[in-house]
Amino acid sequence: MEHYTMNLTLKVWRQKNKKDKGSFETYTVSDISSEMSFLEMFDVLNERMVHEGKEPIAFDHDCREGICGMCSMYINGRPHGPWEGTTTCQLHMRAFKDGDTIVVEPWRANAFPVIKDLVVDRSAFDRIIQAGGYISVNTGNAVDANATPIEKNKADTSFAAAACIGCGACVAACKNSSALLFLSAKVSHLALLPQGGPERKTRVVDMIAQMDKEGFGSCTSTGACEAVCPKEIPITNIARLNAEYGHAGLTSDK
């Protein structure tokens, strides 16, 4: 793999705090190695800004290996940048070339208010999980793990849905700011397993009610969520959620 260095222009959203109006600022960075990760390029810029006595750009990040779901930049018109199936922290600078201008914005959705610069508040996701994204089993109540065999295909599909990292890219990409891919991943994960059976109906109904309350939009199946999901969670999960919801609605006892 050939490595190269590049000079770039960055247009980054700066916003002091929740109440501030915010605006774009332009920065230039030079001698960026193609081997750097996108966030390491931001580190370089921030280091320089501290040196100059300016306030560095705030952005969320933690594990930097694509699994914690904390990083969240909307880069050149796409959540997590140009690479498919990739989080911002795993995006590397070889995705860009010398002289490029890169526009970086925070996730935009009323349900995800900006805290500072590129940092947004995604606590709505936690509240959606609180509404029912779990199996109610207290510690110590479990039977032997092999007591219930589970069809491999179902277990695998369930795992693929459970791979969701809760980053919110689906919401950021959706023209309606819908969180349905996130919800459907959780609903599918649990509905596909026999353990999730007892709470199947209440789970989906309660989680949808919470999603609506949090101010997310509704799904219109454009597929943008699936396209930007760093864990490539398929939109079929949304269909499964719809089926679960319909089933719950039609067979409800109340």
Binding site: I135, K152, F159, G196
Partner: peptide, 22 residues
Amino acid sequence: ASIIDQCVAQGVPFAREYGGLL
């Protein structure tokens, strides 16, 4: 051993064999 039981009960999708066991 109890940890595995607890996690499976919570819905942790561990890898399985074709027979459905872990």
